[in-house]
Amino acid sequence: MNAPRLALIGTGGHGRTHVEKGLRLHEEGRVQLVAVADPVPPAADALPAGVARFTDGAELIAAGGFDVVVICTPINTHFDFASAALEAGADVMLEKPTTATLDEFERLLAIAERTGGLVQVGFQSLGSEALDIIRARVAEGDIGEVVRYSATGAWVRNEAYYARSAWAGRRTLDGRVVADGALTNPLAHATATALALAGATRLEDVKSLELDLWRANDIEADDTSVAVFDLEGDVRLTTAVTLAASLQKDPYVEVVGTNGALRLWYTKDDIELLDANGFVLETQHTGRRDLIENLLAAREGAEALFSPLAGTGAFMRLVEGVMQAPAPRLVAEGSARVVDDEAGHHLVIDGVEEELERALRLESTFVELDSPFTRVR
């Protein structure tokens, strides 16, 4: 086969989606799936004949024989696997967040530039057709002059979520930065998508960053936080997120103008046009391109990457900021309650959804708003 030889590192959890894509692309003749690696790799009879199976990604890379590597592993391993794959001459699809530290990001960027390898970072929402549509409508003046950008998500995460792996809910593990947390991992797409809409994706596009990190759960990382970015062009982006909501809600990003707003429900690729009072005037559903397919097209020179390594620099400012900030503070006593429902055993911060909306509207942190759960004695 002349198709690119594909290897997958990390096939459990979210990695299962990459296995499904890899098998589909193999069956279509667009790639040749040649190797997989995971502590518990897929059974041989679940893979095409001849696919090599490894229990460690380093062993797979050392064995060679691939052109494209998909990496879906714990955050603290991203740099090691991605840099080794690039040095081996491969192009890389790397799950988000890009790396655990800004230093690792800059080193990986230098390696990619030296080797000429392509690196696509797994912010799936950046493959949405909605981004170009919203950019065009903003340029056409549909919402007037841009006032601000917003990103938010209110999710429910139970005890099992934090118990699923050793690194879940951790800032560090075994002396290495993990950088898990609401802002940097589960709801990372919110900020990354808003930065892309703002055209502020490079390291230098972030002028300053203010963080307000909180936790209701017994974890190291944040589960309820605000990030306020000052961006080039004198605009701001406010991200307000929680994993301690009362109900799971779809996350969205928004471009707010003087005459209205354009809102993207980025997990569904749905766009809403809102008037100045927040009433929905029209809706539009759009399509989305797969990031691995886009990487394959980029290898042929047919397309530009949707989520290139260098284009995650602004997001890496957030990751670095979170890790340089003091550890998240525990919410005020009595402000969170335990709930047992269909979502499992989880904590809810009372009124947090309203505080998220206030933070976005006023471009402020929870502390600046004197949110009830910040009133720690």
Rank of each mutant, 00 (worst) to 15 (best):
A179I: 04
S165E: 11
T152L: 13
T193Y: 04
V146Y: 01
Y162F: 15
E145D: 14
G175M: 10
A194P: 11
T191Y: 06
A192S: 13
R157M: 12
A194Y: 05
G169A: 06
E159K: 08
V147S: 08
R148Q: 14
V156E: 07
P186I: 09
A151K: 03
W167Q: 12
V178F: 03
A168I: 04
L173D: 01
V147W: 05
A168Y: 11
T172G: 11
R176A: 14
A188G: 04
Y162N: 07
R157E: 09
N158M: 06
A151H: 04
L187W: 03
P186K: 00
A194N: 06
T184F: 06
V147L: 13
G175V: 09
L187D: 00
T184W: 05
E145S: 11
D174K: 13
S165D: 13
A190I: 00
A151L: 05
A194Q: 07
P186T: 09
A160I: 01
P186A: 01
S165L: 02
A190L: 10
T193C: 07
E159R: 12
A192Y: 03
A188C: 11
L183P: 02
V147E: 14
G181L: 03
A190T: 11
Y162C: 07
A188P: 02
G175E: 09
N158I: 03
Y161N: 08
A182L: 07
T193W: 05
W167D: 15
A190G: 15
G169H: 02
A182I: 15
R164G: 00
R176C: 08
A192V: 09
G181D: 02
S165N: 11
Y149W: 12
V147Y: 03
A163Q: 15
R148C: 12
A190Y: 03
L183M: 12
A160S: 13
A182V: 15
V177M: 08
N185Q: 13
A163P: 05
V156L: 06
W155G: 13
R176M: 11
S150V: 12
R171N: 09
D180G: 05
A194E: 06
W167R: 10
V146T: 10
R157C: 03
W167T: 14
A179C: 10
A151I: 07
A168T: 12
L195G: 02
P186H: 00
V147R: 11
G169F: 01
D180Y: 08
A160H: 10
V177L: 09
V177F: 10
N185M: 12
A154C: 13
R157L: 11
A194H: 08
V177I: 13
T152H: 13
R170H: 09
V178N: 05
A179H: 03
A168L: 08
A160N: 11
G169Y: 01
A168V: 10
Y149T: 06
A179K: 02
N158Q: 06
T172H: 14
A154K: 10
R148P: 00
W167C: 10
A160P: 00
N185A: 15
A166V: 13
T193E: 01
V146E: 04
T191C: 15
H189C: 02
L173W: 04
T152S: 14
T184S: 08
G153Y: 11
V146R: 02
V147K: 07
A160C: 00
A179E: 04
A182H: 02
V156Q: 05
Y161G: 01
S165Y: 06
V147M: 10
T191L: 07
L183I: 10
G175W: 09
R164C: 10
A151F: 04
N158D: 15
